[in-house]
Design a protein around this nucleic acid. Structure first.
Length: 272
DNA sequence: AGTGCGACCCGAACGC
DNA sequence: TGCGTTCGGGTCGCAC
């Protein structure tokens, strides 16, 4: 399940593989995946080339001369490079063919991912992009910024960490890990979060994301990035998916409870 | 405005 | 063994 570290890994691997190659064909096998006009999607891609790949939060942004192709992998979206002559595999929904007879293929078992081809000037007013908050590692992400965002909130901190308009890029796995590293109980209300807890969140989010990127992300279920790289961060998970296993710090059993419908793993002793 | 929750998907895991 | 049911994950949009 791609989070910011996975998306960054995909971005880095794809940049080495697909830039400056002429697009000769586009096949869309699952039309609902494309949020923009389908005919324009094909017409505006064919004959052009990707000149860069950027990222905002969990959104991948493929840059063309006049357009941006926005791509969100949601939980299980993956990109593969294959030969155009290879048979189309199950769950391959969008196939972009280059003039050297290789394909960029988007694969998504859950069909949750979305793509949107927009004119460059539309990027700033595209809601999904425009409302993204600050990323871990951004120097503007300070404790006063977070305190201000949390101060009137009655929602649990776990839910607030998943709100992309506050911090951009944390998903369920890293939200659980960040709270453990910060020694904060996931049920604690936003308005009760202190300045030093904000500092701890900023520090651990940055550290955990950097480490996860270093290790190529976190492989849960079937997730692999475009080069078949297997994320090794999973081995470093302290609480996520470790229900009823011992806390690696104090040996208390890790709990799993739902917060706003999302599995929340925490150590009831370390995170009081 | 803030909050809660169903819808979108389908493979895996689970219950019987 | 096989069938039916439940779950999960990020985001959006709607209801309150």
């Amino acid at each position: 399940m791609p989070e910011i570290a996975e998306v960054e890994t995909v971005r880095n691997t794809l940049k080495k593989q697909i830039l400056h190659k002429k697009i000769t064909n586009v096949q869309v096998l699952y039309e609902k995946m494309i949020e923009s006009n389908l005919k324009d999607f094909k017409k505006d891609l064919i004959g052009n080339e990707f000149i860069d790949i950027k990222r905002v939060g969990k959104w991948l942004i493929f840059e063309l001369e006049n357009r941006y192709l926005l791509s969100h992998l949601r939980m299980e979206g993956k990109y593969f490079i294959k030969n155009s002559t290879d048979a189309i595999a199950k769950h391959e929904h969008v196939i972009i063919t280059f003039s050297d007879n290789t394909d960029l293929r988007y694969h998504d078992t859950r069909k949750f991912g979305r793509m949107n081809l927009i004119k460059k000037e539309e990027l700033a007013k595209t809601p999904a992009i425009q409302k993204q908050g600050l990323e871990p590692g951004d120097t503007h992400l300070t404790s006063s910024y977070l305190l201000n965002k949390f101060k009137n909130k009655n929602l649990p901190i776990k839910t607030l960490l998943l709100d992309q308009t506050i911090i951009s890029g944390l998903g369920n796995i890293y939200a659980n890990e960040v709270l453990f590293a910060s020694k904060i109980n996931p049920f604690k209300k936003g308005r009760d979060i202190t300045e030093s807890e904000c500092q701890a969140i900023i520090k651990s989010a940055d550290k955990i994301i950097k480490r996860a990127i270093e290790l190529g992300g976190t492989t849960i279920k079937s997730y692999t990035s475009s080069l078949g790289v297997t994320g090794r961060f999973q081995q470093e998970l302290m609480v996520h998916k470790r229900e009823n296993e011992e806390c690696k710090i104090c040996h208390t059993l890790i709990k799993n409870e739902k917060i706003n419908g999302r599995s929340t793993y925490y150590c009831p002793n370390c995170q009081k």
